[in-house]
Amino acid sequence: MPKIAILKFPGTNCDEDVLRSLKEVDSGVKAEIVWHKDFRVGGGWDAVIVPGGFSYGDWLRAGAIAARSRAMRELAEATTRGVPVLGICNGFQILVEAGLLKGAFLPNESGRFICRWVRLRIDNPKGPWLSLTRSGDELHMPVAHGEGRYYIEERDYESVVSSSPILRYLPSDNPNGSSYNIAGIGTEDGYVLGLMPHPERAVNSLLAPRGFKPGGEVIFKSVLHSLKPGW
C-alpha cells in the first residue's frame, strides 16, 4: 500500500478532512497528517497532499509564508524525484507561490469569501491524480476561498493550454473571476496538480446537495490506482 503524507502548516484546517475522505475512498489507505516541522523528503512518501486552510493566517498573501518554509523546500525536492503532489485550495496557493505551478492568485472578483458547489470540466487529464478521468468529464465539488481568482499571463496560458491538465469551472459557475475559468492546473506531466475546489468534500453523495454529484472521489481513486505497485 502506498504511503500518503498530508502536510500540515500552522493554520492548515482541511488536513483531517483529507484524511477522513481518503479513508472513505479506501479504508485500507496508509495516510498520515505530517506536521511541517517533521516533514522530510526522505520520509518514504509515495504522494503528498497539501490541504486547504489559511497557512500562517494568510496574512501577507495566501500561501506566501508557507511557500518559503523549509517543508516546502523539501517538497520541491520530492517533486524532482517524481513524488506526486496535490495542492487543494490553500495548498494550491502554496504550490503556486512556491513556483511549482504557474500563475498567481488575486482576491475574488466579488471581494468576498465564497463557499458554494461548482461544476468543473477536465481538459488534458494526465498524471496520477487524474488517471481515472477522461477529457471532458464533469466533476462537482465545493469551493471555499477568498483569494481564489486564478490569474495567468496569456503567453503562459498559450504554453500550457494544450499540454497540461486543466480543470475549468463551467462558465456559468466561475465563482471568482479566474482567467480562462481555471479552477486547477497541473505540471505538464500532471505529477503536481493544484485546484481551488475541495475534492475531499465531495467523496460521498450524502454531502452533495441536490443537483450535484460527489466529484472529488475520482481524484483520490486515481492516485491510489496510479500508486499501486506495477503501475
Binding site: N13, C14, E16, D17, R20, S21, G52, R112, F113, I114, C115, R116, P142, A144, H198, E200, R201, N204, L206, L207, P209, R210
Partner: peptide, 19 residues
C-alpha cells in the same frame, strides 16, 4: 451571508444552509 462562511469544512455538513 452564508456563502461568505465556509460551511463545508469538516466534511460533516449533510444539510447545508439555505436548504
Amino acid at each position: 451571508i452564508y456563502e461568505q462562511y465556509d460551511h463545508e469544512v469538516g466534511v460533516r455538513t449533510v444539510l447545508k444552509p439555505g436548504f
